[in-house]
């Protein structure tokens, strides 16, 4: 049996080549750069406090684009292998279905994290060019977002064996972008109906919290560094929740007729 690392490395190389070939990243990079440059145009109108506005525009663009890229990259990992029938030669090799799923997650996660870092780097470069400094919390922002992308990729890969690719993309984008709204709805429900805090916390824990991995507003408004226990707690949450998504995917995939 081939080791996990070898499987992941092989998938990673093909996944990276596939992403470069598809040119999604270039489109997203150009779009992000245009959005930031467009925001800079406001300076011509004498708008004060432009630094905050530009940072907000830049990090919102990076967050949205990297999330969309991560969902798109992850959602096509398994279904395309099945659709193109390239999964048969893969399964003919001495690897388990669990390793295949893990390798696909590792590929999606690595490529998504790379795309995110590239987007963040371009934004950082443009902001520096405009004379707008970034503070140390930017490092924590990068770190936490990468952890969040790992969790997101696990959710998308896990769901990709249950639903069709288009339904998966739609569902995951709703869960990712709507996570902040779901949180508010739980609080409103508690305030209106008075459900017990025990139930509230249980349900709250079951729902995705992708918005917790986004420190862009704190970067924009130049806050101090977060206590490290917060990063630790969120990493533990991502590991636990992400593993559950992958296990759920594996439970279905291991018996799936291909």
């Amino acid at each position: 049996m081939i080791g996990h690392w070898q499987v992941c490395r092989a998938f990673l190389v093909t996944g990276a080549l596939e992403t470069i070939r598809r040119k999604d990243l270039y489109v997203v990079l150009i779009l992000t750069a245009l959005i930031i440059a467009g925001g800079y145009a406001f300076r011509a109108f004498g708008v004060r406090g432009l630094e905050i506005f530009l940072k907000d525009v830049a990090f919102t663009a990076v967050s949205v684009m990297s999330t969309i890229l991560a969902v798109m990259i992850s959602s096509r990992q398994l279904p395309e292998e099945i659709q193109r029938r390239t999964i048969y030669p893969l399964m003919a090799r001495p690897i388990t279905r669990g390793q295949l799923l893990l390798g696909k997650w590792a590929t999606a996660f690595s490529v998504s994290a790379f795309c995110f870092l590239l987007l963040a780097l371009v934004s950082y470069g443009m902001l520096t060019l405009f004379g707008i400094p970034l503070y140390p919390i930017f490092g924590q922002y990068l770190l936490l977002k990468i952890v969040g992308l790992g969790w997101l990729c696990a959710m998308v890969i896990g769901l990709s064996v249950y639903v069709t690719p288009s339904a998966n993309v739609t569902l995951c984008l709703i869960l990712a972008f709507g996570s902040g709204l779901f949180n508010r709805m739980f609080l409103m429900w508690h305030a209106q109906e008075g459900i017990s805090s025990g139930w509230l916390n249980l349900l709250y824990g079951l729902f995705p919290h992708y918005d917790f991995f986004d420190l862009s507003k704190k970067v924009t408004y130049e806050w101090d560094l977060l206590p490290w226990w917060v990063l630790g707690a969120l990493t533990a949450y991502a590991l636990l929740s992400g593993s559950l998504w992958l296990v759920a995917g594996w439970l279905r995939f291991r018996k799936q007729v291909l």
Partner: peptide
């Protein structure tokens, strides 16, 4: 959960 949100949001 609330404490985490207060930490990661402004």
């Amino acid at each position: 959960w609330g404490e985490l949100e207060r930490q990661v949001k402004p």
